[in-house]
Every structure is written in C-alpha cells, then in structure tokens.
Design a protein around this nucleic acid. Structure first.
Lengths: 187, 187
DNA sequence: ATTGGGTCTTGACATATCTCACGAATATAT
DNA sequence: ATATATTCGTGAGATATGTCAAGACCCAAT
C-alpha cells in the first residue's frame, strides 16, 4: 500500500528503509466514496493529500454558485487548498471525490516535522512545488494565448485518460468554457 | 547594495553575517538598460534573477508574433524562464527590461550549491516556490471566473503601482485582452 | 519649431462564446 | 423493471471581446 508513495518519492530522491519508515509514520490513510468532500469551503484545512487511488476535483465556487475547476487530482497527485493549508486559515476551495478514493494525509504539523527531520524531504517538496508552479504557468499561457477549442485539444493530448473518467461538463469547468460550447467542438 | 537581498531573505528566515556572506558569494550583480534582454527565446537560461531595482516583463510570443505577458518582475521579485532554468534547456520565454534594471544573478549550479551548503536556503526557496504557485493559482481562478473588465479592476486593486509604470497595452497583454477593449473600460 | 515614434481613444463591424430552452440518451437508485 | 437524475447535443438569440482603421496626444531628438 505505502509502496505507491515510496515509489513516487523515489522518482526524485532515493530513500533507504529507515528513511521511508520515518516518512510513512507521518501519514494517515483515509478512504472516501464518490461525492464525499475532503475539504469544504469555510472549514479548516487539516491535510495535504497524496492520492493513492481515485480521482478528485478542486473547485472554486463563484458568487453565482457556478463551479470552476482549479485542478483534477489523479493517482500520485498531491492536492489540497494550499493557501489555507500553508496559512492555516479557512478553506476557500472545496475538494470532492469524483470516484471512490484512497488518500494519504499529511497534517501541516507533520509536514514541518518531516521537512525538519529529513533534509531530503524538504528537497522533495521543493521539486514538487516547482513542478506545480510550472504547470500553473503553462496553464496561464494556454488561457492567454489559445481559443477554447484549442485549449480543449491541448487537454485531450495531455490528459487523454481524463476524458474517459469525467463528464464533459467538468472538463468545460476546467477549461473555462460553457458546457454547450465545448459540446460543439466534438463535431 | 546586497542589503536588499538580505532583508528579502530575512523576511522568511533569519541569517547571521557568516551565513549571508556565504549566500552572497553565489551571486553576481548585473545592470541592464531599458529594452535590453536578460533572456532570449532559444538561448540558454543561465540564471535565476533577483530584481534589486527596475522592472522586467516575462513574455511568451505566439505563432502570430503576438506577445503575452506571463509576469511582470518588480523589485524583490525572482524571475527567469524557470522551466528552462530547472531543466537546463533552451528558453521558450523572453525576459526584457521595461526600465533600467539591476539584478543579482544565481546560476543553476550555484543554486544547487547554495541549497546543499545551507539548509535554510532550501527552506527559503521552498517558501518562494509555494508562494509563486499560489499566485499562479489565483491568477488561473481569475481568468476562469472573471470578465476582462473585472480582471482589470482586480489588477488595479492589487498592483496600483504597475499602472503608473507600464503602458496599458502591456497590461492588456498581461490580462489577456486586446488593447482597445481595455481602453474602453476606463470610462 | 519640426519631425517621428510611441501611446491612447474611439467607431464600425466581425466573431467567439454565453445563455436559455428543449429533448434524447444514458446511468443510477429503488 | 421502473422511476429519477445525469449527461449530452443542438438551435436561436444575446453579449463580450477581437479586429481594423483613423485620428489625437505626448514626448524626445534633431
């Protein structure tokens, strides 16, 4: 079970058994059913979540109650409302299961302890953060430069598996386009 | 001169004189005039830059030769084509001075040495990366949820100083809206 | 004083996308 | 098996924004 996390970390930095045991001791395993919430707007954000299996959506809900998808979290993704997590404030985003999901949870306190206790893990999280930043930057460029249809085609190319797993209305909410407009692209 | 960098770092982690001397030894100072390029598309990206004074634009140029502004870098910002920097590949973005500018340059090699030699600096860069990621995420949400006019008003509120320093055509290129459309908002 | 480059505004028209409405197809729960 | 909710596609009209063109303004250099 925890092997998934170990392999994930070892893609970036090698760990011996003792080190991984130390790492693993900071996590707790939680299981959720489709439609359950890991984070709700206004509540405390206790954990950063490593997705062992399943699929989640991180959502911003606007004044009109319209949902916008900040990101999808599949296997091997880390996900949380990170602003609230790092600043230990209340959630402005929600995190909800699109499928039955298993996550490994890391509290903010344990996150700090882990980094302080094992130098390598601070390095690991730095790499993760850098990749997250670069991914966001690429998405911004896509939003600035491409039409809705082009963004849809880019998404198909980059994440073909997503299309099988989530309804198109959610892809639309991720791309920043209406459900109906996206529907007309397929033709 | 280097005091600016020290104060900047000490907002996040305290340093004694020896530690800062060690940090500073990894940087080189460079000065540029308005219109000069720090990074050009296709060239190597040697440095991450700390802006001591001045103003820069990080630009993505599309197939139609249209410019899109990934970010503005003012005093105390770190800027580079970070994808190319981290992967040591060729630049896809350009970095150009909008004003006469002084930067402190950190090569990739020195960046690694700095992190390895002084634990605290890895921590510092992790904080920076996290903030960069959160900033990008907020901009994505803004692009997904708000009209061009709303995004303009948000920018005015968040960075009123920018408006004095850069032509509106560049603000438009940052917001993802045409120069003409942005011009009509002021009324 | 004059020139030339950059900036800003504005009008007219084109186009992408949104919204609302409806119905068909499909999945899900009882 | 039936009922119910979700999902998907499509038409028609509204709206935001883009594009092209013209002119006004400002400022630095000659």
């Amino acid at each position: 079970m925890q092997e998934k996390l170990r392999q994930h970390i070892e893609k970036i930095i090698p760990l011996n058994d003792d080190e991984f045991a130390f790492v693993w001791s900071h996590f707790t395993v939680k299981k959720f059913k489709k439609h359950q919430f890991l984070i709700q707007v206004g509540e405390e954000v206790k954990y950063s979540h490593f997705v062992a299996s399943g699929l989640l959506k991180l959502v911003y809900t606007d004044d009109m109650e319209k949902q916008h998808i900040v990101s999808f979290a599949m296997e091997e993704w880390w996900e949380s409302d990170y602003y609230a997590f790092y600043t230990q404030s209340k959630a402005t985003l929600s995190l909800e299961c699109l499928e039955d999901t298993v996550v490994f949870c890391l509290s903010f306190e344990d996150y700090r302890k882990l980094c302080d206790g094992l130098q390598k893990m601070e390095r690991f999280f730095l790499e993760k953060s850098n990749f997250g930043f670069l991914g966001s930057q690429r998405r911004i460029i896509s939003l600035l430069t491409s039409s809705a249809q082009e963004r849809y085609e880019q998404l198909l190319k980059r994440s073909p598996s997503l299309i099988q797993r989530v309804p198109k209305s959610l892809l639309a909410a991720y791309l920043g386009v209406s459900r109906e407009t996206l529907s007309r692209f397929s033709r």
